[in-house]
Amino acid sequence: MIASASSPETFWEAARLLKQGGLIAFPTETYYGLAVDPFNAQALQRLFTVKQRAANKPVLVLVHDQAQVRLLAEKVPAELQRLMDRFWPGPLTVVYPAQKELPALLTGGTGTIGIRQSPNLTAMRLLEEFGGPITATSANHSGAAAAVTAAEVEAIFGKELDLIINGGCTPGGAGSTLVAWDQQGLHCLRKGLISLAELGLEKLFSFA
């Protein structure tokens, strides 16, 4: 079912579905994303099945604010905090050491968790209504092009989703920039909308 982002009832229903283990699609600042409760192992399994995603590939998570990062990350190194303060909300996914009790599918067995605060108003409203983090892996079958409209999401998944929030056409193009930290320092794992030059850290970054 496609529902309009202009209706408050859409977000109430989306939050209700997520709390019951549902799977929904919603717009972000890049593509449409697929949302489940990241702490619900059964919902995560359904997400991976529908997306046809390998179990060793982690999925990123959106948070409403920086306080929610602590629900997912074991620690927040100062280097990552500095990037959060400067570029959030925005298309920068930050990879942290993960809380050990997180579902294995969420981290892909990596021991890390990728988190972003989206500037998309529909995504932020969904997060506010749900009251916790949500997954935001791109709306596509693994390896295929990601959907940029609600109609494209419906064409890909049909009735496999419980709800599609129609927030208009998303920009597409490059995804979020992916940055991680380890004992050797900062690493750029994926180039994206925020360039290394914009980050002002190009001399510190390496690709791993």
Rank of each mutant, 00 (worst) to 15 (best):
Q45G: 15
P91V: 06
W12H: 15
P97H: 06
L18R: 07
A41Y: 03
G158L: 06
F130D: 14
A55W: 00
L72K: 04
P38D: 00
S118Q: 14
P77H: 05
G192A: 15
V61C: 02
T112C: 00
A3R: 09
L83K: 00
F130C: 14
R46G: 12
L204Y: 05
F205L: 15
L92I: 13
S142G: 04
S195F: 09
K57F: 09
S142M: 04
E74G: 12
F48H: 01
Q52C: 07
T107A: 03
E198D: 15
L44Y: 06
R125T: 14
G22E: 06
G114I: 00
A136S: 14
A139C: 11
V76T: 08
M1I: 14
C188D: 08
K75I: 03
R125K: 10
A15S: 10
F26G: 07
A180T: 08
R70Y: 05
G90S: 13
P171A: 05
H141K: 10
L193V: 10
F11V: 13
T112D: 00
K100W: 04
G143M: 08
V179Q: 04
E101G: 07
L106D: 04
A150P: 00
N140V: 11
Y96V: 01
F157M: 01
T28Y: 03
I2W: 03
P119E: 15
S138A: 12
D162R: 02
G185D: 09
K19G: 11
E154K: 07
G111V: 11
S142I: 08
V179I: 14
S4M: 09
A180I: 09
L106E: 01
D85T: 10
A147Q: 10
A54Q: 12
T30Q: 13
E202R: 06
G131N: 12
G22P: 03
Q66E: 13
E74D: 15
L186D: 01
V59E: 04
P133W: 02
L163T: 10
T122W: 05
A15R: 06
E198T: 14
L62W: 01
A14D: 02
T137V: 15
F48G: 08
P119R: 14
L17F: 00
R190W: 12
L71V: 10
Q68R: 06
R53H: 12
A14W: 05
G21V: 02
S206E: 13
A180F: 05
A25M: 04
T28L: 01
L127K: 15
G132V: 06
A151H: 07
T177F: 05
N140E: 12
D162M: 04
V94W: 04
P89L: 11
H187W: 11
S138K: 05
A139W: 05
L204K: 08
L44E: 03
L196S: 13
Q117P: 13
S176E: 12
I194G: 10
K203S: 12
L121G: 07
K159T: 13
A145S: 03
G167R: 00
R53M: 08
G131A: 12
